[in-house]
Design a protein around this nucleic acid. Structure first.
Length: 693
RNA sequence: UGCGAGGUAGAGCAGAGGUAGCUCGUCGGGCUCAUAACCCGAAGGUCAGAGGUUCGAAUCCUCUCCUCGCUACCA
């Protein structure tokens, strides 16, 4: 095993175009914070790095839409994000931002270093340009008609209706998502990093050298490398970002994915003049905490960049988490289906540890997981309150009642095996928790920590000091046994604070306060000790560590979630028509309309098309003939529900094959903002084959 | 379409050839120091489905189904 003398821990740079939600927290900020708090407790030299990622096209677009500058956007969200993390006790050593001067200089220098070594390829290509907004358009910002299914809202990279991946050139009638203008092709030059040249090295370093990485991470990297890497552009046409530091690069900036990870380096520079010690000496253990969407950038592209530059350490591990869903549905910031951290802090003041506990115990370490408010309540009430909080409270109350509020001595003459067993249990718990934390298994570590509290309750139950003190006479007789029991329970409580500290730092502090011990007691090396609280010390009155969460609070949160969703949908619906969305298509003459042959028909049969999520094969009765129509409505209607329905059919549309079935017409559907499809049909039943005009 | 990860008691997870385990929930009992908390016990699973290898498969192989991700600047 390699010996490391210091740690550099990074958490993914959140993108500064919105606040952070609990999925972000569960994905990487909480696990990294737990890891770092543990490392600090062991006395390790560790730096915990994060900051906002403030470049990239989405920010310029958001700025354009809100009619402010990109800088306004990032300033606003930088503050919100920073404060959310601080409130939750995420203990970054530095929380920087990529719009800082230090970062611009660092990223520029990084690029120049690679450029001077001749590590970039220069290539010219033609890209769509929006002449109204004067910007080059990323594929995603070109909208047009899908050549496969005719969806007129396909994006330049993919059609979301039929799932085909596209290139902007394939779109019929492309237009800009920003201005609705018809984009034109313009030549543009970019600098590419030939990733394929790093393949042999990546195979050795990653595939051979890091087989211990998590399955989901290793598997995805392997799949990328095995399928062959390609040159990737490291610059973009934009005026928001870090200028490409070359003379002939007007209007070009570094690709955000080139500049963002360098942000880890810049932030470290900002933190300490000693930054090189952390980044350039190979006895540093660099660990990147990220969500699964970032795997390739952190495991392949950024390491390749570091390798290319040559002066930096490489990540030792990248423990990426999967995603957290909320109440059974994927988090969606645009639909406002999310629990925002800044809201949580307001709604549950002084209960950060509850969220930390719940997110850690359901952390998506191996697969996507679901967060529900009911589960949040259950875990708080039946685990934190009933097991952990209750044990500490029982101990404190009994100690005050039976031992006069002072830490009782331990009497060797009445000490028994059960007392020793607690000591043994602590040793083994320390071992297990340490092992789990070192291997990024935070859920497991947390559950071991809770087991310590469970053991405490069990011990107390078996000793039952309250029975030994039923009457004053009995108590006098048993005082030594009672002393021993509460002495053990108090030491156990102190140990619990050490074990809980990485996960529940606010709670650990409360325990320290009650026990009148200083922060240094929380050092990891003290775990397992039975001499943490001193005999004879007067302790403070017990205070509850956790409080119950009531049904109403849960209901409020669930309602809030749904209200947010509805509000956001309404806001979007209101915003859309306000834009010149209505006359998207050119005006037509009556003759054009008359070319359409529309007929009412009745669906007589419907079945799912195999190997297609969205397609149904329908048979439509037009009175004089039967038509086979393939329609992309499987997501919205079940075959059995629509047989017998009347529909409006474009009867003279040229036939088209889809999934090997010839579709002889098209059914008219109305689609709302959420993508919900509804039949456009005659209000009353008419004879099949009736003309519609 | 391809590739990656996953599918195990009502819920959340462990187990990676040898009679299915943990936490919460449920049910029964005990206790009363404690936030109706704690402790003991029980019920509950054809380990997504089908086939195969093996004396023996949740675990290995093949195929199928489902979920999520990547291929697109969401942790």
């Amino acid at each position: 095993m390699k010996q490391f003398n210091r740690y550099l821990v990074t958490a993914a740079l959140p993108y500064a175009n919105g606040p952070v939600h609990i999925g972000h927290l569960a994905g990487c900020y909480l696990p990294s914070d737990i890891y770092v708090r543990y490392l600090r407790a062991t006395g390790a030299d560790v730096k915990f790095i994060c900051g906002t990622d403030e470049h990239g096209v989405p920010i310029t677009i958001k700025a354009m839409k809100e009619n402010v500058t990109p800088q306004d956007i990032v300033d606003k969200y930088y503050a919100i994000i920073r404060d959310s993390f601080a409130a939750m006790g995420i203990s970054f050593d530095v929380f920087s931002r990529t719009s800082n001067t230090v970062h611009h200089e660092t990223a520029s220098a990084f690029f120049t270093n690679m450029y001077e070594k001749g590590l970039f390829e220069e290539k010219e290509s033609e890209q769509y340009y929006d002449e109204v907004k004067n910007v080059f358009l990323a594929d995603r910002y070109i909208i047009g008609t899908c050549p496969k299914c005719g969806n007129d809202k396909a994006y330049g990279d993919q059609c979301e209706r039929c799932g085909t991946s596209l290139s902007p050139d394939e779109l019929i009638n492309p237009r800009s998502a920003l201005s609705d203008a018809v984009p034109v092709k313009r030549k543009t030059k970019h600098w590419y990093m030939p990733l394929q040249q790093y393949e042999p090295w990546l195979k050795e370093w990653l595939l051979e050298g890091h087989k211990e990485w998590k399955n989901n991470v290793y598997g995805q990297c392997k799949s990328w490398i095995d399928s062959g890497l390609q040159s990737r552009a490291m610059t973009r046409d934009s005026n928001w970002g870090i200028k490409v530091p070359l003379p002939d690069a007007e209007g070009k900036v570094l690709y955000v994915w080139f500049d963002a990870p360098i942000g880890y380096i810049s932030a470290t520079k900002e933190l300490t003049p000693d930054w090189q010690k952390y980044w350039c000496q190979d006895d540093t253990k660099l660990v990147h905490f990220i969500g699964k969407d970032n795997i390739v950038f952190h495991c392949i592209i950024f390491p390749a960049m570091l390798k290319a530059h040559g002066n930096f350490v490489l990540p030792e591990n990248v423990p990426a988490n999967e995603f957290l869903n909320i109440e059974g549905e994927k988090v969606s910031t645009s639909r406002n289906w999310a629990v925002w951290v800044n809201d949580y802090v307001k709604d549950f003041p002084d209960q950060q540890d509850v969220l930390r506990y719940v997110l850690c115990s359901t952390a998506p370490e191996t697969k996507d997981n679901d967060f529900t408010w009911k589960d949040f309540q259950d875990r708080n009430n039946s685990e934190l309150v009933s097991i952990f909080g209750n044990f500490v409270n029982r101990t404190m109350v009994l100690m005050h009642k039976l031992c006069g509020g002072k830490v009782p001595p331990i009497h060797a003459d009445v000490k028994d095996e059960r007392d020793d067993a607690v000591f043994q249990m602590l040793q083994s718990a320390k071992q297990k928790i340490t092992d789990s934390l070192e291997n990024y298994r935070f859920r497991e570590a947390l559950s071991e920590m809770m087991n310590v509290a469970r053991e405490g309750n069990r011990y107390l139950q078996e000793k039952a000091p309250w029975l030994l003190a039923k009457t004053p006479e009995l108590q006098a007789e048993n005082q030594k046994v009672i002393d021993n029991c509460l002495h053990v329970c108090l030491q156990l409580t102190a140990n619990l604070a050490i074990f809980a500290n990485p996960f529940l730092p606010f709670t650990a502090q409360k325990i320290c306060h009650m026990l009148k011990v200083v922060d240094r007691m929380l050092e990891w090396s003290n775990a397992g000790s039975m001499k943490l609280v001193s005999v004879g010390y007067t302790l403070r009155a017990p205070e509850l560590l956790f409080k119950k969460i009531e049904d109403e609070q849960v209901k409020e949160q669930v309602d809030k979630l749904h209200a947010g969703l509805a509000q956001s949908a309404a806001a979007q619906a209101a915003a859309e028509p306000a834009k010149p969305a209505a006359p998207k298509k050119a005006e037509i003459q009556y003759d054009d309309f008359a070319k359409l042959e529309l007929k009412a028909g009745t669906i007589t049969a419907a079945e799912k098309v195999e190997k297609a999520d969205k397609l149904l094969k329908l048979t439509v009765d037009l009175g004089s003939e039967q038509r086979t129509v393939v329609s992309g409505i499987a997501m919205h209607y079940k075959p059995e529900d629509i047989v017998g329905k009347q529909v409006t059919l474009v009867a003279n549309l040229a036939p088209r094959k889809m999934r090997g079935i010839e579709s002889q017409g098209m059914i008219l559907m109305a689609e709302d903002e959420d993508g919900r499809l509804v039949f456009v049909n005659p209000a009353e039943a008419v004879a099949p084959g009736s003309n519609v005009s």
